[in-house]
């Protein structure tokens, strides 16, 4: 609009706004309003600025003595003037440049902090019920309660694996045999585990196992009064695992029959998958080799 006339004045930027307004009607009113705007901005910025400074300086104290706020105001004014005197606006800008540098690194740490917190946040609220609670009907609730609030040591989990799990697998194997399917049971140590395996020639073997797994529990549980005693935050639990390395889960709350049902659930899923034609390329028997 000024057709580049104002560019001659770019050397004195502070006056530019007002020169610019001269091209408009009602220049005086516009200039006056502009100054009023800047003045009010100044006052509101300084005012809230003092509060923010005080806020940070007093670690969020609710009420502070008045002289503190005044002190910040005076300090702001004095410093602004001294730096203006020393080097003009560039001096002020230089100080900003210098002090902002460490702060920008701190802000990058904010991001790290946020990422950590957000992922915990999401998993906290998205957490579903344990797989073992699915068959619960309301019977055996007293046993279940006892199970829930007990935390096991290595020995009792091994015991669970050697009794309940082993019995379940053995019964299952016999039933499979009666139906013409050959299943094997293997047990290993380190970590103590037992698995039932159905071998196939042309597709992956079906595998369902239970192993003794370590879990470190939070310190809160150790300190909390209203829970049964645990000594150590290293606890153990029986965890299921599968032939295709899907994530397993805690099975200590299963009764023998429920465990058998769980194995059959996975077996049914397995049969469904291998019966689909398009899965052929994914489940060839080559995959068995890595299990050895």
């Amino acid at each position: 609009m000024a057709d580049g006339a104002l560019s001659r004045l770019s050397g004195s930027p502070d006056a530019l706004l007002f020169r610019f307004l001269e091209y408009f009607p009602l220049t005086e009113i516009a200039s006056f309003s502009s100054i009023a705007i800047i003045i009010i901005f100044f006052i509101t910025s300084a005012d809230s600025g003092m509060f923010v400074m005080n806020n940070i300086a007093t670690k969020n104290a609710r009420i502070s003595p008045k002289w503190q706020t005044i002190g910040w105001g005076i300090l702001l004014a004095v410093l602004a003037l001294l730096l203006l005197n020393a080097g003009g606006l560039t001096a002020l800008q230089s100080m900003t440049l210098i002090t902002a540098l460490p702060f920008s690194v701190i802000r990058l740490l904010f991001i790290v902090s946020l990422v950590k917190a957000l992922s915990i946040d999401i998993s906290y609220y998205e957490r579903d019920f344990s797989a073992t609670t699915i068959p619960w009907s309301g019977e055996f609730w007293k046993e279940r309660l006892k199970q829930i609030i007990s935390f096991h040591d290595r020995k009792s989990v091994n015991n669970f694996i050697d009794t309940t799990v082993k019995d379940a697998f053995t019964e299952l194997k016999e039933e499979f045999l009666r139906n013409g399917i050959e299943a094997d049971i293997h047990s290993y140590g380190k970590p103590h585990r037992i698995e039932v395996e159905i071998k196939y020639d042309k597709v992956n073997n079906f595998l369902y196992g239970v192993r003794n797994e370590l879990r470190i529990v939070s310190d809160y549980l150790l300190r909390e009064d209203n829970l049964p005693n645990i000594e150590d935050n290293r606890t153990f639990y029986p965890k299921s695992y599968f032939g295709d390395d899907r994530e397993g889960y805690d099975v200590q709350l299963f009764t023998k029959n429920e465990l058998i049902s769980d194995v059959l659930k996975h077996y049914e899923r397995f049969i469904e998958i291998i019966s689909e034609e398009r899965n052929e390329m994914f489940i060839s028997s080559n995959a068995n080799q890595r299990l050895k």
Binding site: V52, M53, L76, A80, L92, T96, T99, A100, P102, F103
Partner: peptide, 10 residues
């Protein structure tokens, strides 16, 4: 950092 940012603006 805030202090100098505010003084610059002022």
């Amino acid at each position: 950092s805030t202090f100098f940012g505010i003084t610059t603006t002022l």
